[in-house]
């Protein structure tokens, strides 16, 4: 099955080195992260060393190397969100889930990330839960949302 995914992704590329980042992006879209298997298959497809593929993937903040949790929580860390108290929100999520950003809970139900800027600075501070932007979030409001986590 996983073989099909890679075949499917690779079929729209020509196999040039310049396509590496685009391929990594597509693979991550399909399986959620860059697995060891993905690095191996991409390296064979592009005729690059696995080191080279991993080196590029680890350079860019977008790529991750562990499976994401089911519910994704992204706290925006843009400047506007920061001056409106975004770091308090990041702390609150961390305490609530018992993890820090960049991690998923051990049961893989929640995934906690920081975003450099979600681009809705005028709604600051914002938190994105499952692609839904929550605007002008307060610590207490965020806690209420987190308490309803069973619904996510």
């Amino acid at each position: 099955m996983s073989e099909d995914i890679y075949q499917d992704v690779f079929s729209s590329f020509r196999g040039e080195e310049g396509e590496l980042i685009s391929i990594l992006l597509r693979v991550q879209e399909r399986i959620g992260y860059i697995s060891e298997e993905a690095v191996m298959r991409i390296s064979r497809f592009l005729r690059l060393s696995e080191n080279q593929v991993y080196g590029v993937a680890s350079f860019f903040s977008r790529f991750r190397f562990d499976a994401p949790g089911k519910t994704s929580i992204k706290v925006c860390m843009g400047t506007a969100c920061h001056v409106h108290g975004g770091s308090l929100l990041a702390d609150a999520v961390g305490w609530d889930l018992g993890i820090t950003y960049g991690q998923a809970t051990p049961d893989r139900r929640f995934d906690f990330q920081r975003a450099n800027c979600l681009g809705c600075c005028t709604l600051a501070p914002v938190v994105e839960i499952n692609e839904q932007i929550q605007s002008r979030v307060l610590v207490t409001k965020l806690k209420e949302t987190m308490n309803r986590r069973e619904e996510f």
């Binding site: 040039e16 080195e17 310049g18 396509e19 590496l20 980042i21 685009s22 990594l24 992006l25 080196g55 590029v56 350079f59 860019f60 903040s61 977008r62 790529f63 450099n116």
Partner: peptide, 22 residues
């Protein structure tokens, strides 16, 4: 597409990234 690196706003870094390198 770039993959989120601030340094890639710099010309030569941007070119490296377009070529599929770090």
């Amino acid at each position: 597409e770039g993959a989120g690196a601030f340094v890639c706003g710099e010309e030569t870094a941007l070119i490296a990234s377009v070529e599929g390198r770090r």
